Amino acid sequence: MIEPGATIGILGGGQLGRMLSMAAAQLGYRCHIYAPERDSIAAEVSAAFTCADWTDTDALARFAQDCDVITLEFENIPVAPLRAIPESMLAPNLLALEVAQDRLKEKRFVEDLGGRPAPFAAVDSREDLEQALERIGTPGIVKTTRDGYDGKGQWRISSVHEAQGVPLAGQQLVYEGFVQFDAEFSVILARGQDGEIRFWDSAENVHEDGILARSTVPACPLVLDQLETARMIATDVSDALGYVGVLTLEFFATADGPVFNEMAPRVHNSGHWSIEGALTSQFENHIRAICGLPLGDTALTAPRVEMRNLIGKEALKGPAILADPANHLHLYGKAEARKGRKMGHVTRLVRD
């Protein structure tokens, strides 16, 4: 067990690192942020900050010397430089990072464990794309295998003709057939060092323009009917990875059961509601897990919980949002309210 007063290193300096740091401070830990961006909103609430590139192995090694355990808030980090950090210090481990940051690897990994992803094919050339379209059909989505998130690095294709506009040069891509679904949901679990697993209620998620807009618990009846199967898949994934910390798997609820979409080896936007809506938040349980502490109760604190992201200039509505006493406002301290940028979120506890 890592005793309170120790230092937790966090790779990444965004809002997830900020909320992890705040949860860690509540438990008596100090946090040290490592990120290449100077304007780190996580560093603002942390004890120490190293601003250096992901490929700077000397800086990573010095960073590790100041930490007792190291975690991450962002999975698109080059794996090779992280080998400068003793792997025993990393939670989750490098295997989880390697699988989750590559869409092809994660789909194959889940498929090998009995999960069902959308029909997919690797695309490395125009010929590969044409064959994928012929085998899987349209509509579908071409995605970069790495780095894309919040709708970035994705091209929707409704016909073979539209596929001609997809930029293929120098990119590893995957083509996914479109899934007819009735709802989207996420399974978020915390797995301790001893293998104990706690699940939060699964949120039903609504996306707008490829960005999560709302998460609501409890989810609709269809999601609840498919939850046991989805949780079994998530458990198998976490066990196979030897995972420690919070792990998120996203699913489509379909007429034929849950279809795996993607995974994230970290706390997740669709679990932000848990700060006020659960007895123990995803952020606190992540800190508990990586430090070897007992996991906390994940039960709901209200019959219904709704979380809404504040995108771009929506964050300017903060005072009006607080006029409703059931609302809990979180602004991340980002300076520029750009279009499509997550500036904060609001959680509403519904008790009637």
Results as ranks from 00 to 15, higher is better:
Gly318Cys: 14
His330Tyr: 14
Thr57Leu: 02
Leu316Lys: 13
His32Gly: 12
Glu204Ser: 08
Leu331Glu: 02
Arg103Gly: 08
Leu349Glu: 05
Ala24Pro: 03
Gly312Met: 06
Glu73Met: 02
Lys334Val: 07
Gln15Cys: 06
Ala132Pro: 06
Met19Tyr: 07
Ala132Gln: 07
Val267Cys: 14
Val123Tyr: 10
Ala121Glu: 14
Arg214Phe: 05
Leu329Gln: 11
Ala289Gln: 10
Lys143Tyr: 09
Asp236Pro: 08
Ile70Arg: 01
Trp200His: 07
Glu276Cys: 04
Lys339Gly: 05
Asp147Ser: 15
Glu228His: 13
Ala320Gln: 15
Thr57Pro: 15
Gly12Trp: 08
Leu316His: 12
Ser281Val: 10
Val99Ser: 14
Arg308Leu: 03
Pro139Arg: 15
Tyr34Asp: 10
Glu87Ser: 14
Arg30Ser: 08
His330Ser: 15
Ile233Gly: 05
Ser88Asn: 08
Cys220Phe: 01
Ser88Trp: 12
Thr235Gln: 15
Trp200Leu: 02
Ala84Asp: 04
Asn327Gly: 05
Ala320Leu: 13
Val123Asn: 05
Phe49Leu: 12
Leu20Tyr: 00
Leu11Lys: 08
Arg308Asp: 14
Glu314Met: 06
Glu176Pro: 13
Ala190Cys: 07
Trp54Ser: 10
Cys67His: 00
Lys317Phe: 05
Ile233Pro: 01
Gln282Gly: 09
Leu300Val: 00
Ala264Ser: 15
Leu82Gly: 03
Tyr332Cys: 06
Asn327Phe: 07
Arg38Met: 02
Glu262Cys: 09
Ala323Ser: 09
Arg62Thr: 13
Trp54Gln: 10
Thr301Ala: 01
Lys342Gln: 04
Gly195Leu: 02
Asp194Arg: 10
Thr55Asn: 15
Gly148Ala: 07
Gly9Lys: 00
Pro221Ala: 11
Ile10Arg: 04
Thr347Asn: 12
Gly177Ala: 08
Gly114Ser: 03
Ile77His: 12
Asp324Ala: 00
Glu98Gln: 14
Glu176Ala: 01
Gly318Leu: 06
Cys67Thr: 05
Ile287His: 08
Glu306Lys: 09
Gln131Cys: 06
Asp225Glu: 14
Val305Met: 07
Glu98Lys: 09
Ala118Asp: 09
Glu250Asp: 11
Arg341Asp: 06
Glu184Ile: 11
His161Trp: 06
Lys339Glu: 14
Leu224Ser: 15
Pro36Ala: 06
Gly292Ser: 08
Leu113Thr: 11
Glu262Ile: 08
Asn285Glu: 07
Gly114Tyr: 07
Phe185Lys: 02
Ala234Arg: 04
Gly148Asn: 15
Ala255Thr: 10
Tyr34Val: 08
Arg304Met: 07
Cys291His: 05
Gly277Asn: 01
Leu247Glu: 09
Val305Trp: 10
Tyr175Glu: 02
Glu250Thr: 12
Gln172Tyr: 13
Glu284Lys: 06
Ala163Asp: 03
